[in-house]
Nucleic acid binder design. Structure first.
Lengths: 258, 258
DNA sequence: GCCGCTTCTTGATCCTTATCAATGTCGGGT
DNA sequence: ACCCGACATTGATAAGGATCAAGAAGCGGC
């Protein structure tokens, strides 16, 4: 494990403000794994023995039932995942699959649980991280139950725009089929939803989405701070409590994950 | 606050194994509130200053957007709610409304956060509670995205049956319109879904649902331990890790809440 | 640069769910 | 016991979304 990687892990909300000694204990038995595209890191139902930290690449969390599958989250670096299962020493409720070549740090769950018992500040950091994840899922549930598919897409684009750089063009980092599943629709309907946004100033060319009329899109999307976590991208730690909220909630990407 | 109430709060997963001194600090400034039916305990967007503990009655958590409203959870005693917002000292993402006359214990958020910093065991307990809540929401999301409305109703009935007493008859504790919203459908479609279950051995008379053919219902519902949290009702603390999981996840009722 | 695969799009149709409207049923108040 | 209002059910219709079936476009491999 490179020292640059260690610094990146230390920068996670999960580890900020934690005693160096605790950090050492937690990461002592950790090892870095290079994983090819399309690999299953974890299958739902498996016992979870590690906390995963995505250092490079993209990971998809998904769930299955009765031959159906749905994407629950798409993760980009630096993110941790399946912390909840680690804390409870339980089996995974979601499967994790790489969407490209990835670098993943695997921290033994025992070490995490031990570090929590030894260092209150770490236990508090874990609580904050889980609370952020919890709130991300509440937002996601409201999004799913209160909006139709075109509204979800419109708000997704606005969130991506805010997270990326607030420019006129939003880049989709993943296949549209994956995005469709994340947003709770079929690929066919994602295409149609994009078409439905055209009168509102949205044009698509491959993975590039251009928002030519922000006001019109917002009029349709009606973004809501109690559902959508708009926030400029940035890695800095911010002391302010509310900023901390979106930082924690944001670390794990698009639609409320872990 | 009656001593019997104190005992009930102490019995919560959130406070088990916590030092008496910590419990005293956490609950020192708490006060018991009697709330009439239909009262709003909390509105989404409000700053959350208290952790709520439902001691008697029923509370509904819901979210709104653009004149639409959806029920996110129905809580029965003894349950805590909005722990995540308390931990982050953030604003509420859900509103809380009483569905009948209730007794609610309100614990100042400051006291909770202070207790977490002073007692690692409490911080760990909070983590476990939040992790359980997180996993409840993951289950709920899979339920919503992978199943149609009749399948969701069928599984809801199986879960209620397991939670209540495993008898042939399941009692619905709330209005059907509330249940419909919780399950992500309209009241009209809930009626039709009940009708669709009739060939599978389900009959309804008012709030009483009779399951005359469990095997047939299960064949349709295809319950899955990675979505549905089947468990016999019971308040005991169980040492086994997996049992602990559902205990924490279960405390806050029907469909994964807080 | 061309081929072939995968992904994306578009159209037609079907199924699921929502909406609107009307009737039926239950329970509380007087 | 009656009436009233809220809730639940049922039916008709419409809208949203899924599925099936072709085409079109992009991309990697050679």
């Amino acid at each position: 494990m490179r020292t640059s990687d260690i610094e990146r892990v230390k920068g996670l909300p999960l580890f900020t403000g934690v005693a160096p000694e605790t950090f050492r204990i937690a990461t002592a038995g950790a090892y870095l794994q290079r994983v090819p595209n399309g690999a299953m890191l974890l299958t739902e139902g498996d016992q979870v023995d590690f906390l995963y930290v995505l250092l490079d690449g993209t990971v998809e969390l998904h769930g299955t039932w009765n031959d159906r599958e749905t994407v629950l989250a798409i993760l980009r670096p630096v993110s941790t995942f399946i912390l909840a299962a680690v804390v409870l020493d339980a089996t995974a409720l979601m499967s994790a699959r790489t969407l490209e070549r990835c670098e993943v740090l695997m921290i033994p769950g025992d070490a995490i649980r031990t570090a929590m018992r030894l260092d209150t500040r770490f236990a508090v950091a874990v609580s904050r991280d889980l609370a952020g994840g919890y709130r991300g899922l509440v937002r996601n549930t409201k999004n799913l139950k209160l909006r139709n598919s075109t509204e979800r897409l419109a708000n997704f684009l606005l969130m991506q725009r805010a997270a990326d750089n607030a420019g006129r063009v939003v880049r989709l980092h993943h296949e549209k089929r994956v995005l469709a599943s994340l947003l709770g629709m079929t690929p066919e309907n994602l295409s149609r939803s994009f078409a439905a946004l055209q009168p509102h100033g949205v044009t698509v060319q491959g993975p590039m989405v251009t928002i030519s009329n922000l006001a019109a899109l917002e009029r349709l999307a009606k973004p809501d701070p109690l559902i959508d976590n708009h926030a400029p991208r940035g890695g800095e730690i911010i002391a302010d409590a509310d900023a901390e909220v979106w930082l924690t909630e944001r670390t794990r990407a698009s639609a409320g994950s872990r």
